Amino acid sequence: MKVIFLKDVKGKGKKGEIKNVADGYANNFLFKQGLAIEATPANLKAL
């Protein structure tokens, strides 16, 4: 799943980066902690 990092995550990505991560990691950690959002066309356009 492509995500947009909202904050720096050690070993994974920096704020503003768009990266592919495992679905479970994105859903269970990044999204719940507010560290990233899904890289949907609408979210990409908002950058």
Score class of each variant (00 low, 15 high):
residue 7 K to M: 11
residue 13 G to Y: 01
residue 22 A to Y: 08
residue 34 G to M: 10
residue 3 V to Q: 00
residue 22 A to N: 12
residue 40 T to P: 07
residue 2 K to Y: 10
residue 6 L to K: 06
residue 5 F to C: 02
residue 1 M to V: 06
residue 31 F to V: 08
residue 32 K to R: 12
residue 15 K to G: 08
residue 29 F to P: 04
residue 43 N to M: 07
residue 40 T to D: 08
residue 4 I to K: 04
residue 42 A to N: 07
residue 20 N to G: 11
residue 3 V to L: 05
residue 42 A to R: 11
residue 9 V to N: 06
residue 47 L to S: 05
residue 6 L to C: 08
residue 17 E to T: 08
residue 20 N to K: 13
residue 35 L to S: 06
residue 3 V to H: 00
residue 46 A to P: 09
residue 16 G to C: 04
residue 28 N to R: 08
residue 11 G to Q: 08
residue 35 L to T: 04
residue 25 Y to L: 08
residue 26 A to M: 05
residue 18 I to K: 01
residue 28 N to H: 14
residue 14 K to P: 01
residue 19 K to F: 11
residue 36 A to C: 04
residue 16 G to E: 08
residue 13 G to L: 03
residue 32 K to A: 11
residue 30 L to F: 01
residue 36 A to F: 00
residue 14 K to Y: 10
residue 9 V to G: 02
residue 19 K to N: 15
residue 9 V to W: 02
residue 20 N to Q: 09
residue 20 N to R: 07
residue 9 V to H: 01
residue 33 Q to N: 15
residue 34 G to R: 08
residue 4 I to V: 07
residue 18 I to S: 05
residue 40 T to K: 09
residue 17 E to R: 01
residue 25 Y to S: 14
residue 36 A to L: 00
residue 31 F to S: 03
residue 32 K to G: 10
residue 14 K to D: 08
residue 12 K to S: 14
residue 41 P to V: 09
residue 17 E to W: 02
residue 15 K to Q: 05
residue 41 P to T: 14
residue 42 A to M: 11
residue 13 G to S: 06
residue 25 Y to I: 04
residue 11 G to E: 14
residue 17 E to F: 03
residue 10 K to S: 12
residue 16 G to H: 14
residue 31 F to Y: 09
residue 43 N to D: 07
residue 35 L to Y: 03
residue 24 G to W: 11
residue 19 K to T: 12
residue 31 F to N: 02
residue 23 D to N: 13
residue 23 D to Y: 02
residue 2 K to E: 09
residue 13 G to W: 11
residue 32 K to F: 03
residue 10 K to D: 15
residue 2 K to R: 06
residue 34 G to E: 03
residue 19 K to H: 00
residue 5 F to S: 02
residue 16 G to R: 06
residue 43 N to R: 10
residue 29 F to Q: 13
residue 22 A to D: 14
residue 14 K to L: 15
residue 8 D to H: 03
residue 34 G to Y: 04
residue 24 G to T: 11
residue 18 I to R: 02
residue 15 K to E: 10
residue 28 N to D: 12
residue 22 A to V: 09
residue 21 V to S: 02
residue 21 V to I: 12
residue 26 A to W: 04
residue 5 F to H: 01
residue 15 K to Y: 09
residue 11 G to V: 02
residue 27 N to T: 15
residue 40 T to H: 11
residue 34 G to F: 02
residue 2 K to P: 00
residue 41 P to E: 15
residue 45 K to E: 14
residue 24 G to E: 11
residue 36 A to P: 00
residue 3 V to R: 00
residue 30 L to S: 01
residue 32 K to D: 14
residue 9 V to P: 01
residue 22 A to S: 14
residue 14 K to A: 11
residue 24 G to H: 03
residue 16 G to P: 04
residue 13 G to I: 06
residue 42 A to V: 09
residue 4 I to P: 00
residue 47 L to D: 01
residue 2 K to V: 02
residue 32 K to C: 05
residue 27 N to M: 10
residue 3 V to S: 03
residue 7 K to C: 12
residue 10 K to H: 06
residue 21 V to G: 01
residue 43 N to F: 03
residue 3 V to M: 01
residue 26 A to T: 03
residue 9 V to F: 02
residue 6 L to A: 04
residue 7 K to A: 12
residue 13 G to H: 15
residue 20 N to S: 11
residue 45 K to S: 13
residue 45 K to N: 14
residue 2 K to T: 05
residue 46 A to F: 14
residue 24 G to A: 13
residue 20 N to W: 15
residue 13 G to N: 00
residue 26 A to S: 06
residue 41 P to I: 14
residue 10 K to V: 14
residue 4 I to R: 02
residue 23 D to Q: 05
residue 35 L to I: 05
residue 4 I to Q: 04
residue 31 F to E: 00
residue 46 A to V: 12
residue 34 G to T: 06
residue 19 K to M: 14
residue 29 F to H: 10
residue 1 M to N: 15
residue 34 G to I: 00
residue 23 D to L: 13
residue 31 F to R: 04
residue 45 K to Q: 08
residue 14 K to M: 06
residue 16 G to I: 00
residue 5 F to A: 02
residue 26 A to R: 03
residue 7 K to N: 10
residue 15 K to D: 02
residue 42 A to I: 10
residue 12 K to V: 12
residue 19 K to W: 06
residue 8 D to G: 08
residue 42 A to H: 07
residue 32 K to L: 11
residue 5 F to V: 00
residue 15 K to L: 07
residue 28 N to E: 03
residue 31 F to T: 04
residue 44 L to Q: 13
residue 25 Y to Q: 08
residue 20 N to H: 14
residue 12 K to H: 09
residue 30 L to C: 00
residue 24 G to Q: 15
residue 28 N to T: 08
residue 24 G to K: 15
residue 36 A to G: 03
residue 29 F to W: 13
residue 9 V to E: 03
residue 7 K to S: 13
residue 44 L to A: 09
residue 29 F to T: 09
residue 12 K to D: 14
residue 42 A to G: 13
